[in-house]
Amino acid sequence: MAAWSPSTAALLLRRICAIPLLHCAQRMFASQTEGELKVTQILKKNFPQATTIKVTDISGGCGAMYEIQIESEEFKEKRTVQQHQMVNQALKEEIKGMHGLRIFTSVPKR
């Protein structure tokens, strides 16, 4: 098998990396997607004591996978698995159409 020259390898690397980097830059400055807004609204309704709710579409904007960060008093004295079950229950209908979900929960510090 022949090795690629450094210039060929660099060209391939630029082509491979350019698309995700451009996509990330565009996504960084964009407002929330429809899916992010919908999930945020549902979480606000189900966790009225939440001090932080952050929903991020980590699938590139297609709504297949989300990362959720939520801080709420409702999680007090509950184990992490119970906190995540609460979030899953709140989003049970939306989860049916998702590929994956990352959940980070916490209780506000006093």
Rank of each mutant, 00 (worst) to 15 (best):
A2F: 14
W4H: 02
S5P: 09
T8C: 09
A9H: 08
A10R: 15
A10M: 11
L11G: 09
L13A: 13
R14K: 11
R15F: 15
C17D: 06
I19T: 11
P20A: 13
L21G: 00
L21E: 12
H23P: 02
C24P: 11
F29G: 13
A30Y: 04
S31M: 09
S31T: 15
S31N: 15
Q32M: 01
T33D: 03
T33C: 06
T33H: 04
E34A: 14
E36A: 07
K38E: 01
K38P: 06
K38F: 01
K38S: 10
V39F: 03
T40Y: 05
T40L: 04
Q41S: 13
I42N: 01
I42V: 11
I42L: 05
I42K: 09
L43F: 03
K44Q: 15
K44P: 08
K45Q: 06
K45F: 10
K45G: 00
N46P: 06
N46T: 02
N46K: 12
F47Y: 13
F47T: 14
P48D: 08
Q49P: 01
T51R: 09
I53V: 08
V55T: 03
V55L: 01
I58M: 00
I58Q: 08
I58N: 04
S59I: 07
S59G: 02
G61T: 08
G61Q: 02
M65V: 04
M65R: 03
M65T: 12
M65C: 11
Y66A: 00
E67F: 05
Q69L: 11
E71T: 14
E71F: 00
E71P: 10
E73L: 13
E73T: 14
E73D: 15
E74L: 05
K76E: 05
K76S: 10
E77Y: 03
T80F: 11
T80W: 06
Q82K: 11
Q82A: 15
Q82L: 10
Q83W: 10
Q83I: 10
M86D: 12
K92L: 00
E94C: 07
I95W: 03
M98I: 06
M98R: 05
H99L: 11
L101P: 02
L101S: 09
F104L: 07
T105S: 15
S106Q: 14
